[in-house]
């Protein structure tokens, strides 16, 4: 069991190590797993985070918790100061502590991607990402991908194409599709299928998700 220590005062001091020489920690596992189902770049994503983790492999590890301690999360361009327990997932911090409930939780296991948010534009499953691991990254949620009164082109295309039914998977779908267009402005339908391959929709709205995303890409291309 970890001993309680003085909480970190500022962002850079928050622990960011996931790998220890001994192997993979629970948090490290979560870090990698958080990326797996969220779509665009499974292998690439894991590599990015492993590189960072290995590079930061520290000499003296700080431990925090189990009591809550203060962190600051950068969400949709704003700094939010929170008290979190180390076990708090990013989804819990968003939904419960910040009442940003656009991000949904459906399986709580990283397989349905309803909880997809971006960490520095990388789609991740926020149910499998610890809030503490989001410290120092820019978090973007469904509430933040567009300006207040405007819809993101992907959101607008979803409405035009009726690419939603009950809507519970929709924020995650939108985040995966919008992330795809960030990286690949000219996707094929196969690219869209790949981007949402981790996003489950029980209403079965996929055909219109594909059409809407391709349409949004077209609209963005014609504006560019």
């Amino acid at each position: 069991m970890s001993q309680h220590q003085t909480p970190p005062k500022d962002l850079p001091e928050a622990p960011s190590t996931a790998l220890t020489p001994a192997g993979i920690t629970r948090r490290g596992f979560l870090k990698g797993a958080g990326i797996t189902a969220a779509g665009t770049a499974l292998i690439e994503g894991v590599q990015v985070f492993q590189r960072e983790a290995v590079a930061a492999a520290p000499q003296n590890v700080k431990e925090f918790g189990p009591e809550p301690f203060p962190v600051t999360l950068q969400i949709n361009g704003k700094a939010h100061a929170l008290q979190i327990e180390p076990r708090t997932t990013l989804a819990e911090a968003l939904r419960i502590q910040l009442n940003m409930t656009g991000t949904k939780v459906s399986c709580d296991r990283g397989v349905c991607s309803s909880c997809t948010v971006w960490l520095d534009k990388m789609p991740v499953n926020s149910c499998m990402t610890l809030a503490i691991d989001a410290v120092g990254h820019h978090v973007t949620t469904i509430e933040g991908i567009s300006a207040a009164d405007e819809m993101h082109p992907v959101q607008a295309a979803f409405v035009r194409h009726d690419a939603l039914q009950c809507g519970f998977c929709t924020p995650g779908m939108v985040m995966s599709c919008a992330a795809l267009l960030e990286k690949n402005p000219h996707p094929t339908e196969a690219d869209v299928r790949y981007a949402v391959s981790g996003n489950l929709c029980r209403c079965g709205t996929y055909p219109k998700v594909f059409a809407a995303t391709l349409d949004a890409a077209g609209q963005l291309a014609s504006k560019a």
Partner: peptide, 10 residues
């Protein structure tokens, strides 16, 4: 869809 915007914006 009447509530499409609410659903896509979260």
């Amino acid at each position: 869809r009447w509530d499409g915007r609410a659903k896509v914006t979260g």
